[in-house]
Design a protein around this nucleic acid. Sequence first.
DNA 1: TTAGCTGTTATGTTTAGTATATAACAGTAT
DNA 2: ATACTGTTATATACTAAACATAACAGCTAA
Lengths: 129, 129
Amino acid sequence: MNIIISNSSSVPIYEQIKQAIKTAILSGELKEDENLPSVRNLANDLRISFLTVKKAYDELEEEGYIKTIQGKGSFVAPKNIELMKEERRREIEKHVEEIIKIAKIYNINKSEIDDIFNYIASEEDFDIN
Amino acid sequence: MNIIISNSSSVPIYEQIKQAIKTAILSGELKEDENLPSVRNLANDLRISFLTVKKAYDELEEEGYIKTIQGKGSFVAPKNIELMKEERRREIEKHVEEIIKIAKIYNINKSEIDDIFNYIASEEDFDIN
DNA sequence: TTAGCTGTTATGTTTAGTATATAACAGTAT
DNA sequence: ATACTGTTATATACTAAACATAACAGCTAA
């Protein structure tokens, strides 16, 4: 797993770690029951305090993404596929809500939004199927 | 102008004020050269420190939204319509980028995104024209 | 069993950002 | 002058984030 963090970002380090691990899990890069790096190892790799990594792991456990066993380590939790799909959908919905909020205020219509979508899609090599 | 702030929000108060004023300007609710509430007045209305309002006004001036004259007050800056349109477009683009990033990782296709869009649009009474 | 990994907990410190209060000063307008 | 505007300086309080250090506890393989 490749985690890149930026300490100049306004996003807290522990939050960046959470996001990276969530993404790795949800994309399948990290598989069920797979071992996560130990808090101290990851902290050393990222040159940060193990407490920061622990905070990320603690919250990931609270959210059901991983399981931690004292003395053994942290593992990817057996996942509730439906639940995680739901979570992803909610993320997209949030962005769509923001877009629509902006569009309503400034009288931007659907076709303009589609234009932007198509533009970004081509920039990002996203297949419009 | 009606500004509502929440002190329980994780978004700083000065940021909430900035957003509210930006929106009011860009939507046309506040017109060019129109007088903004004085820092002390707005602070009183919102029951916060005038320094917090001043911070918001200072940043709005830096970003070109308003002009402040000592002894007179703050006014909506003559706007560069094209520039502001660009800024709005950039905001939408950011959300679209996030959506596409998520869609790529989890193999969500355009029609699923459209479904979400249509769902939110109907919820939010957004005309799909 | 012990060494060396794991995670856990406690304590204290530092830093940056946000928000505040207060006071004094400066420009504008009537 | 008075009463509005904005400006500046100083000091304080609070919080979140991140850190360092130390000590403790569970697991496992040599």
